[in-house]
Structures are given as structure tokens and as C-alpha cells.
Amino acid sequence: MRTGRMVAPAAGRLAAARDVLAGLRTLREPAPPSLAGRVMAQLGPVDSVDSYSRMQTPLWPLLVAWGRDGITAVGRADDPAAFEAEYRSRTGRPVRLVREVPDRLTRAVEKRMRGESVPGLRVDLSGLNEFQRRVLAKTMEIPHGEVRPYAWIAEQIGHPRAQRAVGTALARNPVPFVIPCHRVVRSDGRIGRYGAGGSQSKRAVLQSEGVDPDELERLAQAGIRYIGSDTTRIACFPTCRNARRITAAHRVPFRSARDVTGAGFRACRSCRPFPTAQAA
């Protein structure tokens, strides 16, 4: 391939070689200014790595993790190494133990543990799918000291047959206590599974909120699903604050929604124990 025409003299050739390298450098294209921001937005907080800290609560010491978009994880404090490992595998981000907890966060968690609502509380549920988020959002609505069946959540979010999936979503709740998954129990009155320490822990949390798990089981075993008042003719879940106010003399137990409506009672509008369309 080196036959034929002679090209430029040596000096020209050197110049040409320099031209080649200079020419190739003109092909450099700087990244658009938006790129770094896009990457960071995708990653979430990296400037300040997600942090977690130990927090004392009336029940147990907890580990609470947070990032730029709010609380990211809550767990029992028995095993920090497992907490970190699980965190990393779920979020893809590292998490670092720190001493100082932002005051607002401490107050928010304490209030949630007492059953108070915290306006503007930010919980980072990224990484969960739409179904899981809806289950958790609905669970947030269950008041302190009350419980609802898995089937109720399923029905309320428009997937009445998805009780099992509801159970799974709750078992994977990344922020137990903050989102009170312990307030969701089995329809047969048994306490059911609990992601943050098993059913014994679940009983303990419920007791701390004034729920009597034994009483729940007793009612369920007797087949009693709802409690009505013969003065208001309204029926509720047994733990509904309206049901708890009914004095013994006026309590009317019901085994099913049909019994309730058959007796001329209607469903409570705060605990919505069964679909009102069915009652109407």
C-alpha cells in the first residue's frame, strides 16, 4: 500500500501528523450542563449519604434511616449490620450510622408512635410499586388503637381478592411503626404475621396502643365480626372508637354484613366495616 505517489516532504508529514491529532481533538463534545443534575436526581441523596441512627422509643430502641426525601427505613435495633445490608439491597444505596438525628425527625417518629398524625411527614417509598404504595397509604389511615382486617385494605384499594398480596406488601413495609402495619390483622381475629419482630411483637405494639389482642381473638372465635349499638343502629369493627363507646347493655354482636343490614343497622362511616353499596 505504500507504492505509488510520493506525498509531502518530511516536514509536511510531521505537520500533517500534528494536524491529525489536533483534528481529532475537535471531535470532543462536552457533556451538556444538564447531565450531572440528571444523574444526581436519579440517585437521590448522595451528597449526604443516607443516614440512620438509634432512637429510643417507649417500646424498643429502633433504627431509623432517612435520606433527602424523608424517612427511608425503620427497624428493630437488635442487628444494625443486618439493617444496613437489607437497606443496601433494597435501595441500592449505602447508609451510614450517625449520632445526631434531625430534631424534626425525632419528633415526627415519636408522634407517630403515640398515634398522632404528623402533617408534612415525608416517607420515601421509592422502590415500591404502585400496589404496595396504595396498601401502605391506606394503612396510614387506620387510627391509633384500632385494627382492620387484610381483606378490608384489599377491598378499600379496589382489589377485593388481593388479601394475600396485601399481606405481602405489609410484611415488606420499609417503615413499620411510622406506617402502622401492625394495625392490620387477619379476618379470623388472629394477629397474623409481622415483619418487625414476629407476632409477639405485633401483640406488644397493639397492647401499647390499648388494643386487647386476646379479646380480638375471642370475638373472632365466636364468629363476631361487627359490634352494633341498638340506640344508634350503627355497626362497627370491634376496635372502632365508636364501638368501644357502646355500653355493654347496648352492644349487639353481628357475624356478617348481611346480618347487620338484615337487622336494619347500617355501617359506621368512620371505620367503614363493609362496602355501603352492599348495605344500601
Binding site: L27, R28, A31, P32, L35, A36, V46, S48
Partner: peptide, 22 residues
């Protein structure tokens, strides 16, 4: 890992420029 944003800033022209030729 707090060095990550710096790493992006430092290498973004390389990564983008290379991708751009493809």
C-alpha cells in the same frame, strides 16, 4: 461515596463524548 458528585463532574465529558460518537 460523597466523592461521587465530584466523580461525575470530573468524568462526564469523557462518558458523554464517547457515547455521543456512538
Amino acid at each position: 461515596m460523597s466523592a461521587f458528585p465530584r466523580m461525575v463532574a470530573h468524568h462526564q465529558d469523557l462518558v458523554y463524548g464517547l457515547a455521543r460518537r456512538w
